[in-house]
Simulated scan of single mutants.
Amino acid sequence: MTPEEAVTTRASRRSPRPRADAARNRDRIVAAARDVFVEHGTEAPLDEIAKRAGIGNATLYRHFADRRSLLRAVVLLIMCRVADHAERAAAETVDSLTALRRFVHDAVDERVGAVCGLLIDGGGQDSAEVAVQCRRVEATCETLMDRARHAGQIRADIGLRDLVISMSQLARPLPGIEYRDADAHRHLDLLLDGLRVPAPAACGAPGGAEERSVTYTEHAA
């Protein structure tokens, strides 16, 4: 072993890689923080997040020195998962509207509607990692919509901004109104039916239109 290799070996022994349990704790903290921030806002007590993650406050602060760094990690988690869903939908062999529909439902399940509020509260506007994931989502979503437009399945005047704003609004119910996940998915189906060419006449009927290519029940299955 050369002197240089010996120095590298000693350094690696002094700086071991994070243990598997530490990585799991971090993942649990971020997942718990996502749910708590969505339910109670970004000013929710950090000890509530630690409690939900099943760890102590000291463990939380070892991973995240302040609220801002935790917010950034939550935004990054949501955007990574939404980007993955978009790319999986784009890779499917189903028709274009079905792929777009599946992506939209999956994105709402990931609480994508919370991202706007988290970004405003300092959760990643200055993060290069978050910016990369946002570009992944935008590019793949544009691809899904372009395919559906070219196939004559959605209106030509519908753009990415229309879809993103609608998804965010549907995934962030008004305070004080009882709103179940099933409500969000039903309203997404109504929205997507309204994008179709031509829009189904029954899209506003209770229970949804029978001609939808994919219902939330099928999506969840």
Rank of each mutant, 00 (worst) to 15 (best):
L191M: 15
A205F: 10
R149C: 09
S213W: 05
L188C: 10
A209V: 02
Y179D: 12
P198T: 14
E210F: 07
L174T: 07
D189L: 01
L190P: 01
G159E: 13
D193Y: 03
M145E: 09
A131T: 09
A139K: 09
A128C: 02
Q153F: 01
R155F: 00
D162I: 06
L170S: 02
H187C: 08
P198I: 09
D193V: 05
D181A: 15
L188T: 04
G159C: 03
G194E: 04
R212D: 01
T140H: 04
G204P: 01
A182K: 14
A171Q: 07
S166Q: 12
R212W: 00
I158H: 06
A202C: 09
T215V: 00
D189C: 02
V137M: 12
P200E: 02
R172P: 00
L192Q: 02
A184P: 03
V214M: 15
R147M: 05
A156K: 10
E178W: 04
A171N: 15
D183K: 08
T215C: 02
A148W: 04
C134D: 12
D189Y: 00
C203Y: 11
G152V: 09
S166D: 11
R172L: 10
V214K: 06
S213H: 08
I154Q: 00
V132A: 10
V132E: 14
A128I: 09
P206C: 05
G123V: 05
C203P: 00
G176T: 06
R136A: 07
L191A: 14
G123Y: 08
R149F: 02
L163F: 15
A151M: 03
C141R: 12
L174W: 09
D189P: 03
V130F: 09
G194I: 02
P198Y: 14
V130L: 08
A202N: 11
S127Y: 01
E210A: 14
Q169S: 12
V164H: 00
D183N: 14
D146T: 12
D189N: 02
I177Y: 10
A202Y: 02
L160Q: 06
C141V: 15
D193P: 02
